[in-house]
Design a protein around this nucleic acid. Sequence first.
DNA 1: TATTGTTATACTCTATAACTATA
DNA 2: TATAGTTATAGAGTATAACAATA
Lengths: 146, 146
Amino acid sequence: MSSEEALSRDVTDVLGYLLKRAHLQLSAATTLALEPFGLDPRTLGVLRVLASRKSTSQQEVAQLLGVDRTSMVAFLDALEGRGIVSRRPLAHDRRRNVLELTESGRQVFEQASAAEREAEKAYIARLSVDDQRHLRQALRTIVTKS
Amino acid sequence: MSSEEALSRDVTDVLGYLLKRAHLQLSAATTLALEPFGLDPRTLGVLRVLASRKSTSQQEVAQLLGVDRTSMVAFLDALEGRGIVSRRPLAHDRRRNVLELTESGRQVFEQASAAEREAEKAYIARLSVDDQRHLRQALRTIVTKS
DNA sequence: TATTGTTATACTCTATAACTATA
DNA sequence: TATAGTTATAGAGTATAACAATA
């Protein structure tokens, strides 16, 4: 590669910058949109996993979200304290906790999920509908391993 | 929004997840690719700014990269110690430091920049060339403010 | 002996405030 | 008084190690 080529590379040519900035910008917008519900994007992610499964353990949620199991404890302490999630030992393996959305937890989740979706829509509103679809699909493709 | 709609939303439908994961995955790959040069992606970003400008102050670099000016100090301490960047007070305003890539710094930058580019190419290799272009363009569009 | 949840700890990254030297 | 660089400090987020209860 010639020196001129390297020199001509702008910050907005660096994919890492673009992804980082896009993530930070959207994250800020989503955080704001979720504030009225007392949730942040990561906590909503926990609720989403719980909403999509009949019964889940803390470790299972952690693995699905790609976070450490120790990170789950504080999340669930807060969610349980607010009556959004119930946590009780599994009958036939008392090491595991069974996690479930409460009825009010499910309502909070659905409202907050809708707010998150609106924030995303607003963030990519400058793209055509086709470009929005292509962006999502391209990200899915590169993010999916193997 | 109906309950079924909210429930059907998978993690890979959430744009925030996709952007976060893509950023983390690419960041890991780029970090690995830059290791032989003793650089990480953010430090290479500093070098890129210096390579593209005749003369720069620490504050100017910080603003261009969107980081705090206090973050620059440690980066530049390390880069100066390795003889990659020179730092001297500006003659007619001795509060400011003039930052410049040294000759060997420029070589390191160009080699590392090429390695970064290769890592990016590999990361999005599963997309068609057209889709790669569209992805970059879509990200530029949404990241660019106003 | 291995696993789940928990706690304590440490490490990275970044932001805030205060200090210095210059202007 | 305002600004550039610096330093010290604190906060968020995450990872590691060790522990108790259970299998």
